[in-house]
């Protein structure tokens, strides 16, 4: 890396200029837990690293206009320490909390997890399930996009040159709405998800689902919003028949690969299992509200 530069701007505009300025690859650095591994292994050879953590607002969680606004570089530990957010969206916090070890939690951010564009990213399914959006800054100013619009393939995002995510907006839950995220890994910790599933449900006063979003991770090139799974839930209580329909819908939505972390058959089957288990949790949580 003979020509690598490191800068730590303190404004969004400055960061955009630095990211957009050079001819070569420029990477925003938030937690660095993926970027530094790629840098070290030579898989990524950027020309500029732009540390965005010194920009005010990029780290932290605030509540405004009925929404949670999460700075893009907020590390996992801050997310799980924010009681109001954890109470509102336990599933998102579960997902973010599953990214790596406690050490990784000290650094890893939602924006980094998203923009690394791994289909297995743990924080992404629950964010999509919660209909979170992100604010993106770039040479043409700011724009807003739903989280699911960012990843377009393994390692690829829809961000243009010079663009980076500044913050996430997550709506506050409605009455009887809650979520859950579960993933499957071979060990109890430290693995990449073989399958991940985020479920977000809203119930009526009788425990019947009125709205749902089910999102799978690690079973296709990007996270998958499983419309059929949501349909299987809406209008129903979580009984045996609903569970079977949910399981089947989740399995049908899988287009996984066989790799060192799991086979097609295994991922498909476990996707159904996790959908059921995550839905159970989400229903319990929503019902308890």
């Amino acid at each position: 890396m003979p020509n690598l530069s490191f800068t730590a701007p303190t404004t969004v505009d400055e960061a955009v200029r630095m990211l957009a300025g050079g001819a070569g690859l420029a990477k925003p650095l938030s937690g660095g837990t993926d970027l530094l591994v790629q840098l070290r292994s030579g898989r990524m050879r950027p020309e500029a690293i732009v540390d965005i953590k010194r920009i005010p607002g990029l780290i932290g969680i605030r509540e405004e206009a009925g929404e949670f606004v999460i700075g893009a570089a907020t590390p996992g530990v801050m997310l799980s320490a924010h009681k109001a957010f954890e109470h509102a969206w336990p599933g998102i916090v579960e997902g973010a909390d599953l990214i790596g070890s406690q050490q990784i939690q000290g650094r890893a951010s939602l924006a980094g997890n998203l923009c690394n564009a791994s289909p297995a990213a743990d924080s992404v399914p629950a964010m999509i399930a919660a209909r979170a959006t992100c604010v993106i800054a770039g040479p043409n100013g700011r724009r807003t996009a739903p989280v699911e619009a960012i990843v377009i393939g393994p390692g690829r995002t829809s961000l243009e040159k010079g663009e980076f995510i500044v913050e996430f907006h997550v709506p506050k839950p409605k009455p009887h709405q809650s979520d859950a995220y579960l993933r499957f890994i071979p060990r109890t910790e430290m693995d990449i998800a073989v399958v991940g599933c985020g479920v977000n449900v809203t119930l009526d006063g009788n425990g019947v689902c009125t709205d749902a979003r089910v999102v799978l991770g690690a079973v296709a090139p990007t996270q998958v919003i499983v419309e059929d799974a949501a349909k299987a839930l809406i209008g129903h209580r979580l009984d045996e028949i609903t569970n079977a329909a949910l399981d089947a819908a989740a399995q049908r939505a899988c287009k996984p690969i066989t790799d060192k972390r799991g086979t097609i058959e295994y991922r498909t089957k476990v996707a159904g299992v996790l959908a059921r288990r995550a839905a159970k949790l989400a229903f319990e949580r929503a019902g308890a509200r």
Binding site: P186, R187, T188, E189, M190, D191, I192, D259, K260, R261
Partner: peptide, 28 residues
């Protein structure tokens, strides 16, 4: 339970790190 060398068809090791060569961690 989990440790193994995984090679691709060309004889290249696919899991040369502690991420995918899964030794037991404390919570296991």
């Amino acid at each position: 339970l989990n440790e193994e060398y995984i090679y691709d068809k060309d004889g290249k090791l696919e899991n040369p790190g502690f991420l995918d060569y899964r030794v037991p961690v404390a919570s296991d």
